[in-house]
Design a protein around this nucleic acid. Sequence first.
DNA 1: CTCATTCGTTCAATGCTTGAACTTAGTGCG
DNA 2: CGCACTAAGTTCAAGCATTGAACGAATGAG
Lengths: 390, 390
Amino acid sequence: MCLGRTAILDPMTTVDHLRQVRLGNLRTVLLALVDKPGSRADLAARTGLTKATLSNLTEPLLANGILIEDAATLAGMGRPSKPLRFHPGGPVAVGAEINVSHLAVETIGLDGETICRRLVPTDIRNSGLNEVLDRLATLVREITPPRPVLGVGLAVPGVVHDGVLVRAPNLPKLVGEPLADGLARRLDLDVELDNEANLAALAHLWPRHLAGEDFVHVSADVGIGAGVVLGGEVYRGASGFAGELGHVVIERNGVRCTCGSRGCVERYAGLDVILKEAGRRRLDSLAKALGAGDPKALRAVQAAGEALGVGLATLMNLFDVPTVVLGGSYAVLHEHLSAAVQSEMDTRVLAGGERHTRLVASPLGEFAVVRGAAGLITRRAVQQPERLFA
Amino acid sequence: MCLGRTAILDPMTTVDHLRQVRLGNLRTVLLALVDKPGSRADLAARTGLTKATLSNLTEPLLANGILIEDAATLAGMGRPSKPLRFHPGGPVAVGAEINVSHLAVETIGLDGETICRRLVPTDIRNSGLNEVLDRLATLVREITPPRPVLGVGLAVPGVVHDGVLVRAPNLPKLVGEPLADGLARRLDLDVELDNEANLAALAHLWPRHLAGEDFVHVSADVGIGAGVVLGGEVYRGASGFAGELGHVVIERNGVRCTCGSRGCVERYAGLDVILKEAGRRRLDSLAKALGAGDPKALRAVQAAGEALGVGLATLMNLFDVPTVVLGGSYAVLHEHLSAAVQSEMDTRVLAGGERHTRLVASPLGEFAVVRGAAGLITRRAVQQPERLFA
DNA sequence: CTCATTCGTTCAATGCTTGAACTTAGTGCG
DNA sequence: CGCACTAAGTTCAAGCATTGAACGAATGAG
């Protein structure tokens, strides 16, 4: 048992600190602009900075083609204001996703608007590393506009730590492989690897915050993944294993799981389990059956909802976040799933004070993950504005 | 579903920021001093600040009686250094604990050294608010030395949110009562209320960090509480309900729990359950039986360890912290408990990369909670050094 | 044309750390 | 005893991003 020393914060010189002040204010201004465009005077009012500072801060952003000054707007009395917004020819970010059954890509601008997107259904389980990366690189090239590129966010269905895929039950071939480096070399761009559940959660947080505060985003493909957002940041844990809701135990002597444990939520509420119980092969077929009132399908979804609710209740009793967002396949099924989930949560989540737990469905659809992947890049650019001047 | 706006950071004036720089450096210096005493030159080397800044920063701390300059030490060549350390007559912090079966108090200095402590076994379940607070206030007065008092940390066995006890299954009479205010008025001191599990965890983090990084501290009395430490801070969640390990479900159709759920860890690994299964009434009797190899006691502890291990595995799969600290009664039992806990964790915690999970026993004993309560106050004083000049 | 109004720019003042130069207070050696 | 050497602690001008007030610019109302 090591008696470690209390961590000592790095001190900084005053000059460094003043630079940090500037970068922090730059971030504040960019955040305000992500929210919506505005003139210098408007931004000054919204950020609490002075007009003088705003002129000063926006000058290099305009000079470097990050922002653009619109024509003066004639609105009432006084000198007309010239709104600033992100330059339509300014930098973009790329999101890419490698998944079991598809590849997807999307480009977005700093304002978060989608520029171009593609989703290609493919079973890549038999493809090798190079084939996958080649195809993905081609897709990225196809959708990348002739504008500066800030970088690529790459989503994979598995646990990522220190830029390496360390666990991926459904894509075992890719574990430990140089995914980010491989794509980076092909595209000559910075590539950041992350888990798809984390990125789907991020998509609900940036550039617009869906929930307003902490939340968990839950989605299901073969496995179940939860992205936990705490204090405006995706919580990843010490080794990237945080939020593995799929392996929360709900019956300690229950069904064996591939992970070695028993009674994992995944074995009761995973998409494959739901489909099998419902006697369907694909999600859209299941959705149709549910719409038609098929009892077998309804029973399967209800059973999954109950199991998921138990797991989520446990998660809520540990993380105490106020909101759960159902995403991915769960969002598609939420109409027939929510009641069971909510019911289990209501009986099992500890209550007290004015605590409330909301359950909502994601509005983002199948592009949530790639949007989050691209958002990872634009978000970093805004949070570290020095990157914009590289 | 509200589409909230992205949070905008408060900007600050440069002057404000320069003040923050000073306070931040003051914090850095105080943290270094909590680690161990040292001369200005030594502190400069350890903090990375210059000797000039150190002279400047320590001057008011010396003038205000926070620090004291020892006699020069003659160590080798050059001008002898004069070590600085916390003034032995300087400010103190008080920790107090209201629990089902005892009241406890402790005073510590800014260096974290215990000045005085008391633990009084009492069943307070039948006592009213005023009686409890009166007795506690008397105890605090008895152990408070004639030195400036920074404040009081008050620990209670229940969920605390916004300074109010919002849930306490074992002390229902005190829920919603003005505990902090009541004690504050009696002592004419600031009182900060918090959950005992959080404070026990804090005691392992401050002033000396037991684990060196993120960890969970688990303890059991009637209920089971976990204090989760993330990034050097106790994680409390949106409503103070974070870390309710006792109500993690391990058998969804298991034993009914007082919380309304079924199969909560608490129903299998709570201290009351262990004692009952072992046929004992008190912890020390159980410990003795275990030492003597009593099979019934051993079985009871092993069963509890298995249940706890399942719950902890779930926690680890959600929080991904590298270390679990067994505290309170579990620390007493750990010799006979750890194997079962570790075994369940080994099979159920997702592994990958170089992930490691450590299970250690707390060395702090029965004063962990009050030490944490007092530490809450000294920690705040160090983190917000402006409080020291009030 | 003049006044009112709002937008955007210019500029001196502010305050904390730095690093170099300096003072202080010891040791070691002839 | 005195002089060189070493390290601790102190003094002081320089540096930088924001501020707020004053100023210039651009329009509508009368």
